Simulated scan of single mutants.
Amino acid sequence: MKLKKYDDETLKHIHNVELMILKDLISFCDENNLTYFMYAGSLLGTIRHEGFIPWDDDLDVVMLRDEFEKFKKLFLASPNQKYELLTNEAEKDYFYFFAKLSLKNTHFEEKWSSQLDFDMGFNIDIFVLDDLAENKYKRFYQLKKAYLYNRLLIMSKIRLDDLPFISKLITHSMYHILNILKLNPSKLTKKCLNFLKKYSDANSKNVFDISATAKEYPLIYDKDDFKDVIQVKFEDIYVNVPKNYDKILTELYGDYMQLPPEEDRYNHPIDIIDFGKY
């Protein structure tokens, strides 16, 4: 996948719009006593840059499953003129296990978005951490099946044409097979969530992110690492980060305070950008 750089003015505009969305998300969480954490590259940006990674163009937060389900229920219960929450409950063809808080009447879409039946506006990714089984055999099965669901979900909706020939052939074939079997994103997500509920355990020592895969497994964390919240500066506000952020970032990125080489500072390949009135 070929990545690109934005001009400085466009990237600054992107950051300003996404920061507005983050502020509104934080206000909603504060009003409803919900806990979120900055996550992945956005957690790295918070700690290393006190804001956005200068060349990055997205924002990620994460919630534990119980908090996310409360958030989703509350948000979807009241119509919102400014935002929509993209989930499988809201859009039957939505093909991620994480949600997106999407700004209405804007567009921030990759070229495969033409295959979708809904618009993808400027958004924040909201990832979810699920309990991981304690028994090593159940854990092995849970992780393998979760990884499979994650791959099938994407292949059930999106055909990527810029893959190597064999990978393209496999993904296109799976797309057609899944559609013949009528296993659309909504059905696959429901099956997966029912599967995950079987392993839900408040006493679990570990949680995992089904959406983020490292090699062949989803990312795994100690649950206690997301127990305590501290506030850290992000641009002109303060945001929630896990108290054990150093451990989390080290596991994700190694020496995370070290900047990557100049040639590796790229963005996502966004093809359609429309800021609307923002």
Score class of each variant (00 low, 15 high):
Tyr266Cys: 15
Ile272Gly: 09
Thr46Gln: 01
Lys277Tyr: 10
Phe226Cys: 01
Cys29Ala: 07
Phe98Arg: 07
Asp162Arg: 09
Ile126Asp: 02
Asn240Leu: 04
Ser200Glu: 15
Lys138Pro: 11
Asp209Ala: 10
Gly41Ser: 06
Asn105Val: 00
Lys197Pro: 11
Tyr221Asp: 02
Asp24Gln: 02
Phe140Lys: 15
Phe75Tyr: 08
Asp66Glu: 14
Glu9Ala: 15
Asp117Val: 09
Lys233Ile: 07
Leu196Asp: 05
Asp57Phe: 05
Tyr149Met: 08
Ile14Gln: 00
Leu59Lys: 07
Tyr217Asp: 15
Leu181His: 07
Thr35Asn: 05
Tyr36Trp: 06
Met1Phe: 12
His172Asn: 13
Tyr221Pro: 01
Tyr175Gly: 10
Ala99Arg: 01
Ile53Phe: 03
Val229Ile: 11
Ile237Trp: 04
Asp255Val: 11
Glu9Val: 13
Thr10Glu: 00
Asn267Tyr: 10
Asp58Pro: 07
Asp30Lys: 14
Val17Asn: 06
Leu132Val: 02
Phe37Leu: 06
Lys144Phe: 15
Tyr217Cys: 13
Asn123Tyr: 14
Lys100Glu: 01
Lys187Trp: 08
Asp162Phe: 08
Lys145Gly: 09
Asp57Thr: 01
Phe68Ala: 05
Tyr137Met: 15
Leu101Trp: 02
Pro261Lys: 10
Lys191Asp: 14
Phe71Tyr: 04
Leu64Cys: 07
Lys190Gln: 14
Leu86Asn: 05
Met63Lys: 04
Ser42Tyr: 00
Phe37Cys: 00
Leu132Arg: 03
Met155Ile: 09
Ile166Pro: 13
Leu148Glu: 13
Lys277Leu: 12
His15Ile: 08
Ile177Asn: 08
Lys111Val: 12
Arg48Asn: 06
Leu25Pro: 07
Leu43Thr: 05
Phe68Thr: 05
Ser211Ile: 04
Thr46His: 02
Ile220His: 03
Gln231Phe: 13
Ser42Ile: 05
Gln231Tyr: 14
Asp225Cys: 10
Ser167Lys: 15
Asp130Gly: 07
His172Tyr: 11
Ile220Val: 08
Gly254Ile: 01
Asn135Leu: 07
Lys190Met: 10
Lys205Pro: 10
Ile210His: 01
Tyr221His: 04
Phe122Trp: 00
Ala214Asn: 15
Tyr6Ile: 07
Leu193His: 12
Tyr141Glu: 14
Leu76Val: 06
Lys144Thr: 15
Tyr253Cys: 06
Lys12Asn: 11
Val207Leu: 06
Phe208Gln: 06
Lys215Arg: 14
Phe97Cys: 13
Lys82Asp: 02
Leu74Asn: 06
